Measured scan of single mutants.
Amino acid sequence: TRVETATETAWISLVTALHLVLGLSAVLGLL
């Protein structure tokens, strides 16, 4: 259904953003 697709997209966006933040923090930590 469309609701499931929207929820899945939201989760993917959330996980991606989380990985970006963690990756950025790791890079800044190494610097």
Rank of each mutant, 00 (worst) to 15 (best):
E8D: 11
T7D: 11
T9V: 02
T7Y: 13
T5Y: 01
T7C: 12
E4M: 03
G29D: 06
W11G: 11
V15T: 02
A6R: 03
T1E: 05
A26C: 03
A10T: 08
L28W: 05
E4V: 10
I12D: 05
T16H: 02
V15P: 09
S25C: 13
T9H: 02
V15I: 13
S25E: 00
R2G: 11
T7E: 14
T5F: 01
I12R: 12
T9P: 14
L14K: 08
L22N: 04
L31N: 01
E4Y: 10
L20H: 01
V3T: 09
L31W: 15
A10H: 00
L28M: 15
T7Q: 03
A26Y: 13
E4R: 06
A17L: 08
T16G: 02
G23S: 12
V21Q: 04
R2I: 09
S13A: 15
A10W: 14
T1D: 10
R2A: 11
L20N: 03
L28V: 07
L31K: 04
V21I: 09
T16S: 12
E8R: 02
G29V: 13
V27G: 08
L24V: 10
I12Q: 02
E8Y: 04
V21T: 06
L28N: 03
A26H: 13
V15L: 13
G29F: 14
S13H: 01
V27T: 01
L20V: 08
L30G: 13
V15A: 04
L22T: 15
L20K: 13
I12W: 14
L31E: 01
V21H: 14
V27A: 06
A26E: 01
H19T: 10
T1M: 03
S25Q: 06
G29I: 07
L24G: 03
I12K: 13
L20C: 10
V3H: 06
R2D: 05
E8L: 00
L22G: 13
R2T: 09
L22R: 02
L22P: 05
V21N: 09
V27C: 03
E8C: 09
A6D: 05
G23T: 00
H19W: 04
T5P: 02
L31T: 12
V15D: 00
L18T: 10
L30N: 11
T16W: 15
L14N: 09
W11R: 08
V3G: 11
I12P: 01
E4I: 07
L20F: 01
L31V: 08
A10E: 14
T1P: 08
V3S: 07
V21K: 12
A26G: 08
I12M: 06
H19L: 13
L28D: 01
